[in-house]
């Protein structure tokens, strides 16, 4: 507890409503409109397993010095400003680590304002959990700061290959997103890396191909909190963009005994156990269904037709993502 007190020494009071809107600092109007729109969109979303109840506080302190902004459980759109992933930051005695920055420059700027609204300590580390634009395309908002920008060993390659394509997509969704840019990390993790924010060590782990081929997780030793990012999806259907068998193997060891709390890439923070079980059930069923279809000589289209309507756990966004998962699983498993 003493450490906890020390860690919070110069932390300002956790904001009671909207840290951005109530911040005295001038924020760009577009960024404000964007966060306000997310607030509105979330407040009126009443789908099973959604996070509507919490969304009125965009940055919530979910553990001592750990702040999360929940993304809405939707596909990216102009209305939700692309704010669909969980992003946030961890405050140490001396500095702050930002973990993911959202889809756009505006979201990155909003995150930076949120940090400033709770502490005067500088941002020392900027961590990208993987290549997807809903997670790390707000990085440019920190470009003028002397931070350690960190990602998986494979992230620079993935950004180089996909970055321009994603930017084009974002600009199509809204002209407001067209000033967004992606920034490759300057330091990369091949296995694990330890960083310290001042009496607050974080363990970064680079995973073999799972959700993508560049997944990075962050473990906060002080609270036993694992920032799992998109290795875990809560409520919203997991999307496969790496290796299905690799992801299943990662889930076997993801929740080590010292993990007490988990931040998924999408959906509710929890102890992670049930979230992991649900994801494991879905991915296992996907693997077995696709394997059987391939063994029977079914082609990709026939496999899709057979497996398209199989939503066992009432996942959100099943219809928009399950088919794609079947395709990804098929192209992987046909080489077994």
């Amino acid at each position: 507890m003493e450490m906890r007190e020390k860690g919070r020494g110069d932390l300002k009071e956790a904001p009671s409503f909207h840290p951005i809107a109530s911040s005295p600092v001038q924020i760009p109007r577009r960024a404000f409109l964007c966060t306000a729109a997310v607030f509105a969109a979330t407040a009126f979303t009443k789908t099973a397993g959604s996070i509507a109840a919490e969304a009125h506080l965009p940055f919530i302190e979910i553990a001592d010095g750990v702040f999360v902004r929940y993304g809405v459980q939707e596909e990216m759109s102009a209305a939700n400003c692309g704010a669909i992933a969980n992003i946030g930051f961890i405050v140490g005695d001396e500095s702050v680590a930002v973990i993911d920055t959202g889809t756009t420059l505006q979201q990155g700027a909003a995150l930076r304002e949120a940090v400033a609204s709770v502490t005067s300590r500088p941002v020392s580390h900027l961590i990208a959990t993987h290549v997807h634009p809903d997670h790390c395309f707000g990085h440019a908002a920190f470009s003028d700061l002397p931070v350690h920008s960190i990602g998986h060993r494979n992230l620079p390659r993935a950004l180089a290959e996909r970055g321009p394509f994603y930017l084009k997509r974002l600009a199509e969704i809204s002209p407001d997103f067209s000033d967004t840019a992606y920034v490759a990390p300057e330091e990369t993790v091949s296995d694990t890396m330890r960083i310290d924010l001042g009496n607050r060590p974080l363990l970064l782990k680079a995973w073999p191909p799972a959700h993508t081929d560049n997944d990075l997780t962050v473990f906060d030793e002080r609270t036993g909190l694992l920032w799992a990012a998109d290795l875990l999806f809560a409520g919203r259907l997991p999307t496969l963009d790496g290796s299905l068998t690799g992801w299943l193997a990662a889930l076997d060891v993801l929740l080590s005994p010292d993990v007490r709390q988990v931040v998924p890439g999408h959906g509710q923070v929890s102890d992670g156990v049930e979230t992991l079980q649900e994801e494991l059930a879905y991915l296992t069923r996907l693997r077995d269904g696709v394997r059987a279809a391939i063994d029977e000589g079914l082609d990709m289209s026939a496999t899709l037709a057979r497996l398209e309507d199989d939503n066992q756990l009432d996942w959100l966004l099943y219809d928009t993502n399950h088919g794609r998962n079947v395709v990804a699983a098929y192209t992987e498993l046909e080489w077994e």
Binding site: N154, E161, Y166, T212, T239, G242, N321
Partner: peptide, 26 residues
């Protein structure tokens, strides 16, 4: 076009290079 984070790109680059040239007939 597809939605979400789908990209016309490799999902597992290292595997693609490691397995290069392997063939199957069915």
């Amino acid at each position: 076009a597809s939605g979400g984070c789908s990209a016309p790109a490799s999902k597992d680059h290292d595997l693609a290079m490691a397995r290069l040239g392997k063939m199957r007939l069915k």
